[in-house]
Amino acid sequence: MTHSDISLIDLDKSPLGAVDEEAVRLADVLDAHPGTSGVTDSGPEGDIVFTTAAGTWALDLRTGPDGEVFQNPTGAPAPAAVEGPAHEVLRDVVVPALLAHPAYRATTADGDLLTVHLATGRHYTLALTPAA
């Protein structure tokens, strides 16, 4: 088999989409955080699956009201005071991991939903659910 017998992907012509790039970055950030282990970005629905002391969880990027994952810039986020197992994992593991990375400006947790505000001013929402 010679080099001309196979089709190579030219990443300059076929890069990952912005959502895929963000999912990879998010998985890397969580993987580097001491509160997580076993991070993978290949869950059953393309989720980012990770394990904490509170169990195994899946983060799933959500489509916003305009049909896109990344939403237009908004004002400063308001903190939410919702409790529960998912909220505790978001508060104790996910939010500190993200805020330690320069790509993320702020995060807000509301129950099992996390809104991530990027340094670019845009934001997106993730849902945290227990992984089976």
Rank of each mutant, 00 (worst) to 15 (best):
A97Q: 03
V89M: 09
P85W: 00
G84W: 07
T108D: 14
G111Y: 07
P77L: 01
P102E: 05
A97C: 03
A97H: 02
A97T: 03
V89W: 09
A109F: 03
A100Y: 10
P102M: 08
A76D: 06
L90C: 15
D110A: 11
P79M: 05
P96M: 00
A97D: 03
L114G: 08
T108H: 14
G111Q: 04
A103N: 03
L114W: 10
R105M: 12
P79Y: 02
V95W: 03
A109W: 02
P77M: 01
E83H: 13
H87A: 12
A80Y: 10
L99I: 11
R91C: 07
V82A: 15
A76F: 05
L114K: 07
P85C: 00
L114H: 04
P79Q: 02
A103G: 13
H87S: 11
D112W: 09
P79I: 04
L90D: 13
D110L: 05
P96Q: 01
R105S: 10
A78W: 04
L90T: 15
V93N: 15
P77Y: 00
G75Y: 08
E88D: 14
L114F: 04
A80D: 12
A97S: 04
R105P: 05
L90Q: 13
A80I: 13
P79R: 02
V93L: 15
L90F: 15
A78D: 01
V94I: 05
P96D: 00
V82I: 14
A100T: 10
T108N: 14
P85S: 01
E83P: 10
P102W: 05
